[in-house]
Simulated scan of single mutants.
Amino acid sequence: MGRAATAAPAGFWHRAAAWSIDAACIAPVAMLLAWRWLQPASVPFCEATEALLRLAGELAARAIVDGTPLHGLAIALMHDPRITDATATLQLATWRWLLPASFAFGLVGAAWHVAGERSRWQGSPGKRLLGLRVTSRDGATPSLARSAWRHLAGTASWATLNLGHVMAAAGPRHLALHDRISATRVVDDAGPEARLPGWARAWLTLVVVAGVAVTAWLVQRAAALMEAGLLAALY
């Protein structure tokens, strides 16, 4: 029996580890490619974020001093025209920063993944490290058009707030949304009982810890800006 006949569907965590490795390689290249647009867009984005958080803290302090009950505080803030204007400014600044970053990441990612799937590895370098391959439903190497369509279909998995990716956790076929759309699958030649290597578990742990640390820093920074606005209003 050949590889196509014996290969088992790749598990969710194997795929997650492979994708995160690829993303860590793609992101720096994408940022360099988009830096010409990201650098000037980052300044208004940071300023708009800071202005909104400070304003929210200031208005919250004034509402409390005026006796607004806590349960009505959020409603009062949402209907304040100054908050509405600041939010609109932040949304525009966010899109101006996000669009070039997303386009560059998608462009570099397309070259990275499509080239990998069309190679003898049948997968990106991240998949190669985990022993995974991308195949068509019949086990053959995907055509150039199918690989490109698979990468484009990944947009649908992201657009569903990653539910399309989580679908890969469901057995027995472990197909993500973009696998279903493009009629492809990710297989693991090591078999269905293959365990995630220790180094890959350590890598995923590092990714989670880094994500939690960045989130905690952002929350702390947001709280500090709101506190500064609150104190400015009170004193």
Rank of each mutant, 00 (worst) to 15 (best):
S119P: 01
E58D: 09
V186E: 05
L77V: 14
A111R: 10
S182C: 02
A30V: 08
L99R: 00
R128H: 05
A8P: 06
L70A: 04
Q220G: 15
G211V: 07
D138C: 01
E193T: 15
V187G: 08
R173F: 08
R15S: 12
W13G: 02
G2W: 13
G106V: 11
V166Q: 07
S124C: 15
F105E: 01
L163W: 10
L53Q: 15
R118D: 10
I75N: 05
V65P: 00
W13F: 00
R185F: 11
S136G: 04
E193I: 04
A27K: 03
L218E: 08
A228G: 04
M78E: 08
V208E: 01
G72K: 02
L53G: 15
H178V: 00
G171H: 00
G11K: 03
V43F: 11
R221W: 14
M167D: 02
W203A: 10
R185G: 09
V114Y: 03
G139N: 10
R36D: 12
L231K: 00
R96G: 13
A224I: 01
A159Q: 07
W13D: 01
A76H: 07
V166K: 06
A7W: 11
A8M: 09
L196Q: 12
N162G: 12
I21E: 00
L206S: 01
L132W: 01
R195G: 10
G72C: 06
E50D: 11
L161I: 06
M167S: 07
L230D: 10
P9T: 15
A24I: 04
W199L: 11
R3G: 11
P44K: 13
